[in-house]
Lab assay of single mutants.
Amino acid sequence: DAEFRHDSGYEVHHQKLVFFAEDVGSNKGAIIGLMVGGVVIA
């Protein structure tokens, strides 16, 4: 149960990062950079 909640939280966090990247611009380099930055921060 705890693992499921953790996975759901991660999924929401990931979707927010992707949405933010798409909102800023559909530049693949920027999106990839944001994703990598999110992984480093996390």
Rank of each mutant, 00 (worst) to 15 (best):
G33E: 05
Y10I: 11
V18I: 12
V18M: 08
S26P: 01
A42T: 15
H13L: 05
E3N: 13
A2M: 10
G38Q: 05
G33C: 07
F19K: 12
M35R: 00
G9F: 11
L34E: 00
H13F: 14
E11P: 15
F19E: 04
I41F: 12
Q15W: 00
V18A: 09
G37V: 03
D1R: 13
G29I: 14
E3I: 04
H14E: 07
Q15G: 10
L17S: 10
I32L: 01
M35H: 01
I41E: 00
D7C: 12
G37M: 01
I31V: 06
A21K: 06
V40W: 02
A42R: 01
V24H: 09
D1I: 03
D1Y: 10
E3W: 12
G25H: 07
H14K: 07
H14M: 06
D1C: 07
E3Y: 06
I32W: 02
H14L: 09
E11Y: 09
A42M: 12
V39M: 02
I32A: 02
S8Y: 10
G9I: 12
D7K: 13
D23S: 08
V24P: 08
H13W: 07
Y10E: 13
Y10A: 10
Y10P: 12
A21C: 14
K16P: 15
A21F: 14
M35D: 01
F20K: 14
V18C: 09
S8T: 07
V39E: 00
V18Q: 12
G33T: 03
L17T: 15
G29Q: 08
H14R: 10
V36D: 01
V39S: 00
I41T: 01
G38A: 02
M35Y: 00
F20M: 09
S8I: 11
V24Y: 03
K16H: 11
H6L: 06
L17H: 14
V18W: 09
V39Y: 03
V12I: 09
Y10D: 10
A21L: 14
G9M: 07
H13C: 14
D23C: 04
V12R: 12
N27P: 03
G37T: 00
I41S: 00
A42S: 09
M35T: 00
F4D: 08
E3P: 13
G33Q: 05
H13R: 10
D7V: 09
H14Y: 07
D7I: 08
E22P: 15
G9S: 04
G9D: 06
F20P: 04
M35N: 07
H6A: 10
A30R: 00
I41C: 00
G37I: 02
K28T: 08
E3R: 14
A21S: 07
G37D: 00
A2F: 09
M35C: 02
S8M: 09
F19T: 09
F20Q: 08
D7S: 15
A42Y: 02
K16G: 06
R5E: 00
L17Q: 03
H6Q: 13
V36I: 14
D7P: 14
V36W: 02
I41L: 05
A2W: 13
S26K: 04
F19R: 04
H13V: 15
V39T: 08
L17A: 06
V18K: 09
N27Q: 03
G9C: 09
V36T: 11
A21Y: 11
S26D: 05
I41D: 04
L34T: 09
E11C: 15
A30Y: 03
F4T: 11
V36E: 00
V40F: 04
I32P: 01
A21D: 08
V18E: 04
G9V: 07
R5A: 06
A21H: 13
V40G: 02
V39Q: 05
G33P: 00
D23R: 14
Y10K: 09
G33D: 04
G29Y: 02
Q15Y: 03
H14N: 11
G25K: 15
A2E: 08
L34N: 00
F19Q: 05
V12C: 14
G33V: 01
G37L: 01
V40E: 01
D23Q: 08
E11A: 10
D7A: 12
A42N: 15
V39G: 01
F19S: 05
G9W: 12
G37N: 09
I41Q: 04
A30K: 02
I32E: 01
V39F: 05
G33L: 01
V12A: 13
G37Q: 01
H13T: 10
Y10S: 11
V12M: 14
V12Q: 08
E11R: 14
H14Q: 07
F20T: 12
D23A: 07
R5I: 06
A30L: 12
D1P: 13
K16S: 13
F4C: 07
F19G: 06
F20S: 09
V40N: 03
V24K: 13
V12E: 08
Q15A: 12
G25P: 02
A30Q: 03
H6W: 08
A2K: 08
E22V: 08
A21Q: 09
K16V: 07
G33W: 05
H6I: 06
S26W: 02
A2V: 06
R5M: 12
I32Y: 03
E3T: 14
A30D: 01
R5W: 05
D1L: 04
R5S: 12
I31Q: 09
D1W: 06
G25Y: 13
Y10C: 10
A30H: 04
M35P: 01
K28C: 09
E22N: 15
I32Q: 01
R5V: 11
H13P: 14
F19D: 14
V24Q: 15
F4S: 05
V39R: 02
E11S: 09
A30F: 07
E22R: 14
H14W: 01
V40M: 03
R5C: 07
K16Q: 13
